[in-house]
Design a protein around this nucleic acid. Structure first.
Lengths: 204, 204, 204, 204
DNA sequence: AATGAATGAGTTTTCATTCAT
DNA sequence: GATGAATGAAAACTCATTCAT
């Protein structure tokens, strides 16, 4: 039986072990030995599949980003109005399988690490730019240009803020609250703008 | 005769060197040797003053937190209305001497590290709780109870989000933009509430 | 395929290297690097097998104690009278493979170290108590109770004294002389008691 | 006021601190800083008086040896018969001010250290030779030549053995028991020889 | 493909010693 | 003389990486 896909599975297992190890010990204190043990394989094998610790970490980050992006894309595909697409993006950023302690821990570690690791930085920037552009584009249907850009930035900031603040909570994750907080921000901006436009009209 | 006050100065120098070293190499890759070199002293001296790497890092974090807190307290003391106090808190969180690349880098590192380092976590939680309580208290003069709590949380999240997103920018820091973004959030919430209350009154 | 039994052999080699290193440089001045070099392995390997210097030293001491104990037990098994068993214990304490410069050096170092290292102390106490009890038990066949206890203590003291005085000799080891000295003590006590009992009988 | 003798007093204080430090932390783990602190002086001063750690330790050992030797000499001066002189030597080896936990700890450390430190070894050998010669000389009045030499060696061994075994006791010191044990050995040898000579005479 | 023993470079830490004051 | 700040060499220890099996 030719173990087709064995390699892919091994890689997935190792990446999952990496995420868990970061969660448990912290990014700085993770060792290849811990990851290997957690994945139930020998230390040598991790190198065999990923070449080096750096590459394993990079692969792990790409994996997290991809999962998050996939979730958002899937939700976007089903949303039919600009407003719904904004909600899809927000909800996608707090998808049940991503917004979990271990993934959050790894994600934050990579985020901070990005400051000194050019490859991480590039990946995050691309992701961030896409997010901003997506939000802005859809907000343009509801707000004037400058407002849309600012609210997009505010939304992205609040999403990241909610993620990082998760580090202070003890294991408990509140997806609904996180989504509500960000939605509330967007909704407030949209409504206020609507009311103000309206009153302007009335005055006219 | 040993110079009096030498110790305090040395400690300050070493903490500054630590912040810079974290900025340049990243939290995980900082070594005592780098810090010592940057401070222009021997490796042994760092241990002489701080006992261990862990304790030096802890002292550095406390220092950052204290500076931030001091800045906020000073601004709060001069603010005279609830609204002004909210602005004081926001502005204090982006004080010119704190919201700088090196301090931001160190701050984020400690924030993320807090997940696995109980002492860091405790400090950040205390700081965070005080911030939330301060914001909520002043927002209560402008919004109903549940709204005030939610907006306080939103404000804190957005502040943290703006900090962390700084990691993706290249060295440039936009204090005014950061403050404007958070102020905009608060202002939007307050205005919307005011308008809605008004319309309710009108309807009545 | 990793050689089976490699670990046990490595550990033995490293313990032997430790004993030799203590012999050559003295307990306080032994370094892991010296031990590693002497064993012909890298420094890292010693930690791999023993975890720390303390644990390597503890393992070395246990090894020495075990060898000594084994030698005594083997001799005891072949002795058929109380008197012969006492001789077996004495001879066992100067077994040819234990009473050698390197082993003596290590043994003494551990003995003295025991004063400040609780685990060492415990091991030595157990060993010492067993020796005393063994001696006392067999002496009871030849001497009254209080005499047996005192002579057991004297025997143990003299054995330890002969060991420590070995530190002053230059490499030469005189097993026969050592055994003769202790045997002479025991024999003297037994004979004197016998003669005195006899004379008491005669007087009666 | 010219502090005459200040230096001598300082040296004595530092040596006492050294003995205490060895007692508390063990020979290997003693540091100059501990000794200085214990003596209530700065670290630099210890070097000023002794030049180096090695020289301080050497001075400490000489001091211990001298005290012990003085005690024995004083007792010898008052003893009037060979038998009394033997007792004087034994008692002097367990003098109340020497046979104390701290001094014992230091003494043993130096004894073991002697194996690898030529200067220590020389001192101990001289001391040991003098002890042996003293014992032998006085025993010659009571025993034939070979017996005297052997019993002198046995006495010295038992004295050292009692000292080293003190390391296994917990702080309690039993001078009377120690003296009794060694005296018992000597007395046994003398009596047995007397009885055997007597019986030979009777037979003749 | 898989193992895990082995390496060695790099890091923290300790401490005797020096030296300006 | 006296201090204690400062040094720097040496030690323990860690861990990514290699490699024989």
């Amino acid at each position: 039986m030719p173990k087709v896909g064995m390699e892919a599975e091994r890689r997935r297992t190792l990446i999952a072990a990496t995420v868990d190890a970061i969660h448990e010990r912290g990014y700085c204190d993770v060792t290849m030995a811990q990851i290997a043990k957690r994945a139930g394989v020998s230390g040598g094998l991790v190198h065999h599949y990923f070449g080096s610790k750096d590459r394993l970490l990079a692969a792990t980050m790409r994996h997290l980003l991809k999962d998050l992006g996939d979730g958002i894309r899937a939700r976007l595909a089903e949303a039919e109005t600009p407003r719904a697409r904004i909600s899809a993006i927000i909800e996608g950023n707090f998808a049940a399988d991503q917004f979990q302690p271990a993934a959050i821990a790894a994600w934050l570690a990579f985020y901070v690490q990005a400051r000194t690791t050019e490859s991480n930085r590039r990946l995050l920037r691309i992701y961030s730019a896409r997010l901003a552009s997506n939000l802005t584009f859809n907000l343009l249907a509801l707000l004037p240009r400058e407002r849309a850009a600012q609210v997009a930035e505010g939304t992205a900031s609040m999403i990241d803020g909610v993620w990082i603040r998760q580090a202070l909570r003890d294991g408990t994750v509140d997806r609904a609250g996180a989504i509500a907080l960000v939605e509330d921000y967007v909704e407030c901006q949209i409504r206020l703008h609507a009311l103000q436009s309206e009153s302007v009209l009335l005055v006219d």
